[in-house]
Design a protein around this nucleic acid. Structure first.
Ligand SMILES: [Zn+2]
Ligand SMILES: [Zn+2]
Ligand SMILES: [Zn+2]
Ligand SMILES: [Zn+2]
Lengths: 156, 156
DNA sequence: TCCTTAATGGGAACTATTTTCAATAATACC
DNA sequence: GGTATTATTGAAAATAGTTCCCATTAAGGA
């Protein structure tokens, strides 16, 4: 039986209120779903995971909400090349958990990695500075993905 | 009036023959189109640019050919978040012209940059090595994109 | 030249996403 | 609390990019 009461403010309430958005049960469910996994969920995936407890949250709302969350900077939208968009929280209750991706072109498996991030971040900072100066571009975030073949697919 | 004769081998003929693919007029037109621009063309864009001279090359063939070229490693497929895939040659007659992307989330403009690539490449090499050892993943290529707002959109 | 088989195009099918619109519910104000 | 305002909503229809199907064509090897 789902809790429909506002059981105290959540860590993300401020962030979306600041953008002028309202807090609704659907949004609560969607963010909760995203924050309870490390998977890279599609809109349909989110729908499937929510539908049991919130049968009255439609797919349209999922799309709209995810879009809104991307706008508010709470969610990052990816494309791994399989025709559907994937979504991931940019941060959790405990703060950001920044990572990059290793994508298998054989089976579409995606590995999050945080190793080597330190060196990368250092370089990225310099690159961002150089790029934004040269092209007069305000850089908000970046996407780094390595494509290749995973162990399982190599075995075939 | 289009030249339908095989006017001598092109630089890419070997690459696709080696993969067991045949040389056809449609494929010739598609690769020629990709190599004559630095734009990031969608399948429909390619179709539009070819259709005058090759009215008998259908959209299906464009999709199929682009897919095949991605397989053969001659073309890279991107997603800039506007719902359609974009294609770019990985190399030209004179060899690779590797670059990364700066994507404006306001107007979807895309800037290719090659500045700072040297530092990046050095780091990427190390990262790739580390990642492929740790995750036993064979890395074939990478995608680096910075997202932000371009000068024009900042002015608004 | 002939034969095998990959490649083709046109339309239909498919799939992810967006739009529309009347109904609902979250916030602001009292 | 009660009410007004206005964002949010779900369902169905519309859209758009991409893939499938299948009878026909043509590339490349013999
Ligand atoms: Zn794999
Ligand atoms: Zn991830
Ligand atoms: Zn812009
Ligand atoms: Zn490019």
């Amino acid at each position: 039986m789902p809790c429909r009461k506002r059981c105290g403010d959540q860590w993300w309430h401020g962030k979306i209120k600041d953008c002028g958005y309202r807090i609704t049960a659907g949004r609560e469910a969607i963010i909760e779903t995203l924050s309870s996994t490390h998977d890279h969920l599609s809109a349909e995936d989110v729908y499937a995971r929510i539908h049991d407890r919130f049968p009255n949250v439609g797919l349209t709302t999922i799309y709209r909400t995810l879009d809104m969350l991307v706008n508010a900077g709470l969610v990052f939208k990816f494309d791994f090349g399989d025709g559907k968009a994937r979504y991931e929280l940019t941060e959790g209750p405990k703060g950001a958990h920044h990572h990059h991706h290793l994508v298998c072109t054989g089976c579409n498996r995606v590995i999050d990695y945080t190793d080597f991030i330190d060196d990368e971040v250092e370089l990225l900072r310099r690159t961002e500075k150089g790029l934004s100066d040269k092209y007069r571009f305000r850089i908000d975030n970046h996407l780094i993905q390595f494509y290749g073949t995973c162990t399982e697919c190599l075995a075939k």
